[in-house]
C-alpha cells in the first residue's frame, strides 16, 4: 500500500502530502506519524499541505487528530502551506481545526516549532491557551 513519507529533520518530522489523499491513506498517516514521533523522540511535526487541492471534513479531522495525538506525545504540530481557496472553503464548510497551529510556509513553520519547543514557559502558556 502506498504511504506518505515522513522525513526526520533534526528533532522534527516533516510530512509533505503530495497526493490526493484517500481516506485509508489519511488513517495510516495518523498511525505512522505517532509511531515515528516516539521512535525518533520528535519534538515537532511539520505537515506541508501545499499540494492539497481540498481539505474536507475527513482530512480536517485527521489533521486535528494528529495535532492532538502528537501533543499528548509531547510534540507540537504545525500545518503549513494551505492554499487560499482551501482556507476560504474550510471556513464555509465549518471546519475550525481547533488546536491546529498553522503557518504560511515551511520556513515560518520551522521558526514556530523552534519557539514552541525552545522555550518551555512559552510552550506551557500556549498549551494552556489552546486547551480551552
Amino acid at each position: 500500500m502506498e504511504k506518505i513519507p515522513i522525513l526526520k529533520m533534526g528533532k522534527y518530522l516533516l510530512v509533505t502530502i503530495q497526493v490526493d489523499m484517500h481516506d485509508r491513506l489519511a488513517m495510516s498517516l495518523q498511525d505512522d506519524l505517532t509511531e515515528k514521533i516516539v521512535l525518533y523522540n520528535a519534538r515537532g511535526v511539520l505537515i506541508d499541505i501545499s499540494s492539497l487541492e481540498i481539505v474536507d471534513s475527513f482530512i480536517g479531522r485527521m489533521l486535528s487528530n494528529i495535532a492532538s495525538m502528537s501533543r499528548i506525545l509531547d510534540a507540537e504540530t504545525v500545518v503549513v502551506g494551505m492554499r487560499p481557496a482551501v482556507a476560504i472553503t474550510m471556513v464555509e464548510l465549518g471546519l475550525d481545526m481547533k488546536g491546529v497551529k498553522t503557518a504560511l510556509n515551511v520556513d515560518m513553520g520551522m521558526k514556530m516549532l523552534d519557539i514552541f519547543t525552545g522555550k518551555n514557559d512559552e510552550q506551557e502558556k500556549l498549551n494552556d491557551h489552546s486547551e480551552e
Binding site: 487541492e53 481540498i54 476560504i88 472553503t89
Partner: peptide, 30 residues
C-alpha cells in the same frame, strides 16, 4: 472510499469545463 477520490477528480474536471474560478472549483469539489 477509493471512489471518493475519483469523484473529486471528475467534479473538478467538470467545474473546469465551465470555467469556475479556483475558489468555486474548490467549493464544489469539497
Amino acid at each position: 472510499s477509493d471512489d471518493i477520490v475519483l469523484i473529486r477528480q471528475v467534479v473538478r474536471e467538470w467545474a473546469l469545463m465551465i470555467q469556475f474560478s479556483l475558489v468555486d472549483q474548490t467549493k464544489i469539489v469539497t
